[in-house]
């Protein structure tokens, strides 16, 4: 059993793992182990772990491995948060502004549905409907004379 021995030290490179990731991972393990931080946040961070309950050496090594995995997990989450920041801000802005849009929408003129259903460019009209039969026949007769 290992819980009577002193803290086991884990050296964490602060250039790879941020301090906030270390705090986050440590917080996850606070119910399983006693955790203590020391060292220099700019170069090498020392994380000291000691199991709360009695456990075998293998189990404690497993706990240390799990802590390292959690550290990686937190770092990845931070990276995702950073890369999605602009999208999240847009979604929040949209969510905050949508009630304002509902308030002022009554002052904004809604487009007439009948007009929308019409054909403003006359795409559906035939050539004859656009220019008429007579005009075409006049042009044709002029060309023949020439």
């Amino acid at each position: 059993m290992i819980n009577k021995i002193k803290y086991q030290k884990i050296n964490v490179n602060s250039k790879i793992y941020s301090l906030s990731a270390i705090y986050g991972a440590a917080y996850i393990f606070i119910d399983k182990a006693y955790i203590f931080l020391d060292g220099d946040p700019k170069s090498k961070i020392e994380v000291f772990l000691k199991p709360k309950l009695e456990m075998k050496k293998d189990e404690f090594n497993q706990l240390i491995g799990d802590f390292k995995n959690e550290l990686l997990n937190y770092s990845l989450r931070e990276q995702i948060v950073r890369s999605n920041q602009s999208i999240r801000e847009m979604i929040i802005a949209q969510a905050l502004l949508s009630p304002l849009y509902d308030t002022f929408s009554e002052f904004v003129e809604e487009p007439n549905k009948d007009e929308e259903s019409e054909d403003p460019l006359g795409i559906t009209k035939t050539w004859e409907e656009h220019f008429g039969k007579k005009e075409i026949s006049k042009k044709k007769s002029k060309n023949v004379k020439k």
Binding site: S20, Y23, G24, A26, Y27, I30, Y34, I35, F36, L37, K50
Partner: peptide, 16 residues
Amino acid sequence: VDEFSNYVLAQMVKDK
């Protein structure tokens, strides 16, 4: 001593 250090760590996370 150990429990206190864990509590301080939790407070740090809470403050952040």
